[in-house]
Structure formats: C-alpha cells, structure tokens
Design a protein around this nucleic acid. Structure first.
Lengths: 352, 352
DNA sequence: CACTCGTCGTGAATCGATTCACGACGTTTC
DNA sequence: GAAACGTCGTGAATCGATTCACGACGAGTG
C-alpha cells in the first residue's frame, strides 16, 4: 500500500457544479435547468439562454450517474468483441463508434479475449452500467446472460454471427456465400485438394458450409478436408503449418480456405518458411480483408467483409432508426484476388 | 421513425432486483446488504452468507449509477487513444484491461481517431462518467480539458508520450533511445543518406531526436532528412512513396526510419510496387514491432516497444499500487532485425 | 450484580438529475 | 368582463446504494 504517493494531482478538489449551482446563478429553479437541457421546448427562449450561459460560466458538465439513476439507463451502448487485436473488430468498433457519436451516444468496448468467463463478466458490467443496448460478437453460443439482459429490457443485436435456429436480432455479412466464393475461386483455378482451416465461431461454421457446398456442387471430383482450431490467430496459423508440413506429399493440399485473415497470415508465413511456394504450389484464400492482407509477404487473396458498415448498422438498429429487415442484401461479401491464389501449375512454367 | 419495430426484445421488463429486495429475502436491513459487499468484515459470517445466498438467488447485480452517485466516482478507468486501428494501441488497451480486471476495475476505451475535437468530447464523457482515473495517449499537446480534470481530482497518466518541459505523470518507453537504435543500425550497415518519416506526436519527435543524435555522433559524413506526415498510417506511407519515387537518383535515400510500423508497412509496400529493392537498395526500420511486422512482404526490421506492459503499469499507477519512479528503466526499446535492413550493397553482389 | 466495552445490525440522510402535479400569469373568446 | 385555456416556471418526490450515528445485545471485569 503506497500512502503519500497517492495519485491525486492536486489538492484543489473543487467539487463539480450541479444543477443547483446553475439554477442559483441563473436565478431559476433546478427543474428549469433540467428542462433546459432535456426538453428545450419546455422553457422560453430567453430563460433558456440565461440558463445555458450560467452553465457555461460554471463549466457545468452534468452527472451521468444521477441522470442514469433517475431515467434507468445510460447513453452508452455496449460492444462485446472476442478479440480487439483482430483488426476486423477494431474496424467494427470504429464503425459503431462513429455512428453512435453521430447520435450523441457512446460505445463501451469490452474485449472478452475469447474467454467465456470474461464475456460473462463484461455482460454483468454492461448491466451494472445500464447500457441502453448491446452489440455482441460473441465467442460461441449466445450467452445465457445476454438473453437475461434482453428479457430485462436491454435490447441487443448479434453482429457477424450465425442466425442459426434461434431468432434473435442479428445482422451479418452472408458468410455462407463468402465461403462459397472462396472455395469456388480455388476450384476454378484447378485446385482439387482443399482444406478449410477455421475456428469455433458460428459465422466461421457458415463460411465452412459455403465452402463445402462449393465443393459438393462442383462437377469434377474434389475434396475438402476440415481442420478445426480453437482460436483464429496468426500464431495458431503458424502452428498449424508445422503439422501440415510433416505430411507426405500425397496428403498435402493444393488449396486452403482460412477462417479469417489473421489465421491466413500465420499460415502463409509458416508455409513460406517451410519452403512451400505460394501461390505456385498452393493457393490460399483468407477472409475479412483486413488492412494488412495487402501488405503480406505475398499479398493475400481474401473475401471482403464490411465490418465498419455492420457496426454502424447495428447501432442504428439498437437506436430504433433502422430495422433488421432494412439491412437485407447489404453486407455482401466480395472476392478480392491478390497474389496468394493462382491457377494450378499444371501447364504453367515456374519462373525463368 | 420506426414505431412497432422498436428494438424491445420482450415485454417482461422485470425490473432488476435492488438492495431492498435482497434485504427482504435475507431478512436483514438494506444497510446490512450494502455492508456485506463493501465491507465484508463489518457483518458476521453467517449473515454474510445468508445475504450472498439471497443475492445469488435473485440475480442481484447492483446499480452502478446509484453507487457512483453516492461515492462520487466509478470503478472504471478511461483510456484515450488516438487510433484503435493501430495494433500498438490495441495492445496497450489489452494490457491495461487485463491489469484493470485483476483489480476489479474496467477500462472505457475511447478512440479519438486523431481528432482533437473527438478527444475533447471523450474527455467530457469521461468526466460525466466519473472515471476514477485516465490513461491518455493524446494526439498532440496535453489537452486543457485533461488538466482541468486533473485539477478537479481525477488522476491521469500520460502513456507513451513525451514528458517534455511539463511534469505531468507520464510513462513511456525511451523513444529517444529507440530512435537512436534505429538510425545507428542503419549507419552501421553503411547507409548514409537517411530519411526520418513521421508524424506530429511528441513521442515521435523523440524518436526523431534520437535518430538525429545518432547521425550527429557518427564519425563519418551522413545526412538525415526529415519528412513530416500528419497521420502515421499505412495509407499515408504509400502516399509518401509516390512523392519519393519521383526524385532523381541522387536525392534518393538509402535508409529510412519510420515513425511507426504502420507507416513503415505502407512505405515498404509502396517502395516495392515502385520497383525499389528492399533491403538491397534501401534499408527500412519501423517502430513498435506490431504483430504484422513479421508478416510483411519483406519482414520488417523494427524497434520493439512494450505496449502491453505500459498499459498495465499505467493502470497500476492510477490505482496507486505503483509509482512513476518504480517504472524507471523498464520499457527499454530493443532492435529487432528482420529483413528490411541489410548492409549497403557496395561490396555485396546482387543474387545470382 | 452492575458496569463497561466491543461487536454488529439498523433507521435515516444523502448524492444530483429528472419529472409529475400544481399553479401563476397572460391571452382568447363569447 | 368573466370564463376557459394554454404557456411556462416551480416544489417536491423519486431512483438505489452508501454510510453516519445510534442502539441492542453479549461478554468480560471488579
């Protein structure tokens, strides 16, 4: 316990002005001050002006806690993401934040780091903060706590997650279609031994389903192996390549669809370090189109996913100025061909 | 205005249990319930147990607004960053968050997006939220609002920013030393026409100062040109290369120190697209060692910066369990040599 | 047995903004 | 000219957790 070195910066400690102070200064009642800010039409123009002037002079800020205690909810919206280190979620957060700011709202970002415990802890935090709505990009299943919050009157929107059998409000890009796009691209290039590598999120399952459908629908024989990972990070991607590289040539894939770009970047790095030529020996497609995809050792072919737009839409839905239906058909995935994918080398010659 | 499609998820609207409910259920007074959670020693063990049991059964969460209104500050700490899309800040946030969680605190992340206006707006938000402390990684100068908050009793710590002439609580890596490291590395490789490209942040100025010192101290003739950018992003980095590439060969540098890795990545991409061979023609050193530095077209040589540790320390300082002095000597920058830097090609032969 | 002291539970005041219900005042209308 | 109505300001109650000041009760002491 440190005593003298407490982090107080000054002994001034002037307590912040309250409505009472402003009221006294403007010569009106506390009620009038409050109405001035919450229902401007309720007070006559010149009184309003006087109140605002007094407030400015005193540097009145207002106490959100008191406001919240009275009205029962805060101006903040909660955003729960599984990994803020993933640029996709950073972008989602940025999009949500900009939209929220435009409506005088704020976003509380909570990073669960893929841990269901922390996810639950943060949901409790959101409840204690009385956020007026929650954007959730959850780890796996929809947590019970979130449903409880919904029942207790806090609206939520699932972002970028499978709608599955349930019917909670949810928006997302068409992940199935995106997965189909990715696998089709590889098949069209002559790749036949594909692997899907991805993690345990519902939206990733959809990407997988799309890839699977592409292979099933394909007129020629082609295979799709599935490698499941627990977390979709670059580190894990590299780890997977180590296993992969031990395989005999016959079991080696000629095309990989990764569950997201982070994973793809790790795979790419591991493969190249291991002597695999990308895209000559193997084509690789990521998912999300994060900024860094374009800067990779070999610029990454990927599926673009409109994260920022999703974040903004989710906020608008929570605020009641847009409905889930309004977003249908937006957020279409799009194939971005860069350099990790190339037609199979059967009739191509390797460099000169 | 959408009417029926309001985002209410259910009409249940069961209002959350309060201390009064818990008290009734446990057969004690409201005061006892409160003491149970805030000063456990104050109530006898078996009553404590009974209260906790009742609270669990009711799913009591507690109303932070009421708590805050009474005690005058919240359990949250505010973190203000200039760009959450920069992995450095994501990492800083993660480090701060983990440390905060370990002490039962939460982090409110605010992303100013390099805009002083948004920065000020968020500072106001923090004040209205009555955060118990602020971690700031500000855009440029220390905003007046932050000083005001400090005067009014909210402690703050400047993270990763120059200490300059002022004497506000601040921690950061030794940016001057890092800049020196970067430039020295290039000079040691025989590079002589250096450029420092970087943005308007105080900590970047220190990196520049360090680079300058390295050049000044160097026994042989060498030059350091300075290119200033307003924002240090990959996009800007690419834009700068376009200008650079138009220069005649005589004005072209053989070594670049970038203000951060994002900028370096953009520069790298732009240079390579423009036909410059890195590192043969030009060595490049970034700053921060973000995860993606290792995955770049050419893996990026950079200076490691311990962002997560900085975030954790800042939280500990705000919580009063560590003092600014305790951190001295930690957070030392470290040169990470990858492949964008190589001895100048005077006596080297270009591949075969 | 009476008195002191410490332990531990309780009633009530408090934090600051919001909002209901009331009333003062001025205007319109027959 | 009086009744009816609308506008706009105000006093007071309210939200839920915390904490002060008090007191009940039991144990220990002379």
């Amino acid at each position: 316990m440190v005593s003298g070195s407490a982090p107080k910066q000054s002994k001034a400690e002037v307590s912040a002005p309250t409505v009472a102070d402003v009221a006294a200064r403007a010569g009106v009642s506390r009620a009038t001050v409050s109405y001035t800010f919450t229902q401007p039409g309720r007070v006559s123009p010149d009184l309003r002006r006087r109140v605002i002037e007094a407030a400015d002079e005193l540097g009145y800020v207002g106490n959100e806690a008191a406001r919240r205690l009275r009205v029962g909810h805060s101006l903040a919206l909660g955003l729960l993401v599984s990994n803020i280190g993933n640029p996709v979620y950073a972008e989602l957060a940025a999009g949500a934040e900009a939209e929220a700011a435009a409506h005088g709202r704020f976003i509380l970002v909570a990073n669960s780091d893929e841990s269901p415990e922390r996810e639950r802890a943060y949901l409790g935090f959101f409840e204690s903060q009385q956020v007026s709505g929650i954007l959730a990009a959850p780890v796996g299943d929809v947590p019970e706590e979130l449903l409880g919050l919904g029942r207790r009157g806090t609206p939520f929107v699932l972002v970028g997650t499978a709608t599955g059998p349930h019917s909670y409000p949810a928006i997302s890009g068409d992940n199935e279609r995106g997965g189909h796009l990715a696998a089709s691209h590889l098949l069209a290039q002559g790749r036949r031994r594909l692997i899907f590598i991805g993690g345990p999120h519902p939206h990733v399952d959809l990407r997988l389903a799309g890839a699977k459908r592409a292979v099933d629908e394909f007129p020629e024989p082609a295979s799709l192996e599935i490698i499941r990972v627990q977390v979709q990070t670059a580190k894990v991607g590299e780890a997977v390549t180590r296993t992969l590289l031990r395989r005999p040539a016959t079991g080696f894939p000629d095309g990989i669809v990764a569950g997201n770009d982070l994973l793809a970047l790790g795979l790419l790095h591991g493969l190249i370090m291991g002597g695999v030529r990308v895209p000559e020996d193997l084509s690789l497609v990521g998912y999300d189109d994060i900024e860094f995809a374009d800067f990779a050792i070999v610029p990454l072919t990927t599926i673009r996913h409109p994260s920022a737009a999703l974040g903004a839409s989710a906020v608008r839905i929570l605020l009641g100025i847009e409905s889930e239906r309004d977003t249908l058909g937006r957020f279409e995935p799009e194939l971005v061909v860069r350099e990790t994918s190339l037609p199979a080398a059967e009739d191509a010659h390797h460099d000169g």
